[in-house]
């Protein structure tokens, strides 16, 4: 099992479109992927859209991502990559 800490950096937080992208990415891997708020108030299956939305992860929220399975390394780096890139929202949105 691999664990990694991520922070929601994009302006809109883990909103609907970002969550959909996350779930779509997560579903391309075999490993079980979970996201947990570091304050312990909620955790989610990263392959389930409603579960991810229930994290209510707005900008600045810290999450613990965990992956377990045959492709856990690739899976966790893909998911962490999405957080790092701000879910492709781009600079235009960040400046706004």
């Amino acid at each position: 099992m691999i664990e990694r800490r991520v922070t929601v950096t994009n302006r809109l937080g883990l909103h609907a479109r970002a969550a959909a992208l996350l779930v779509r990415t997560a579903n391309t891997y075999k490993s079980a992927l979970r996201l947990e708020r570091t304050d312990g108030t909620a955790s989610a299956d990263a392959k389930s859209i409603l579960s991810v939305l229930m994290l209510a992860a707005s900008r600045g929220t810290e999450l613990l991502a965990t992956a377990e399975g045959v492709d856990e390394t690739e899976a966790i780096s893909a998911v962490c990559g999405l957080f790092a890139e701000g879910f492709g929202e781009g600079e235009r949105v960040d400046k706004a």
Partner: peptide, 20 residues
């Protein structure tokens, strides 16, 4: 549904700022 979710995100964000 998404509008309701966005409202939820806003309230948690303001809570984070307050605690900050």
């Amino acid at each position: 549904f998404i509008a309701r979710h966005e409202k939820m995100l806003e309230t948690t964000e303001s809570r984070i700022q307050e605690s900050g």
